[in-house]
């Protein structure tokens, strides 16, 4: 089950549609980093609200994706971590340290606008 990635302006939006296996997550990692590398993208949103579980592998992979995107000069926001998933992640000892999160897609877009706007002013 591959994850569709939409381009909106200078943002990429990946909306995960269902539970993902490891291979699907790695494919998302490849697709996103490739697209950030080759097109004029400065922001990425990954919507994880359809994920049934965020276990050690999916958390690690999402964190890697966020770092890779940052290295490519863009910002990534993870949106839609459900409360029960957050609860299990914390009990398991998992963190998304250094990764920006927002409640939902709207909040994520607003956050990206602010982050990237700030960068524009400073640069």
């Amino acid at each position: 089950m591959s994850v569709p990635i939409l381009k909106q302006g200078t943002y990429l939006i990946a909306v995960i549609q269902s539970a993902l296996g490891d291979a699907d997550l790695l494919m998302l990692q490849n697709d996103l980093t490739e697209m950030v590398g080759e097109s004029n993208v400065n922001g990425v949103i990954v919507d994880v609200s359809a994920l049934d579980v965020m276990d050690s592998f999916s958390t690690r992979t999402l964190r890697s994706i966020a770092y890779m995107i940052k290295l490519c000069g863009a910002e990534m926001v993870i949106v839609g971590v459900k409360p029960e998933i957050a609860f299990s992640m914390v009990q398991l000892g998992l963190t998304l340290e250094g990764v920006i999160t927002a409640l939902d897609l709207d909040e994520g877009l607003a956050l990206l606008d602010r982050e990237i706007g700030k960068r524009g002013e400073n640069g």
């Binding site: 049934d52 579980v53 276990d55 459900k82 409360p83 029960e84 609860f87 299990s88 992640m89 009990q91």
Partner: peptide, 12 residues
């Protein structure tokens, strides 16, 4: 839902 997520995460 937090119990169901905990069980699914443990199995994972």
């Amino acid at each position: 839902s937090s119990d169901l997520a905990a069980i699914a995460t443990a199995i994972s």
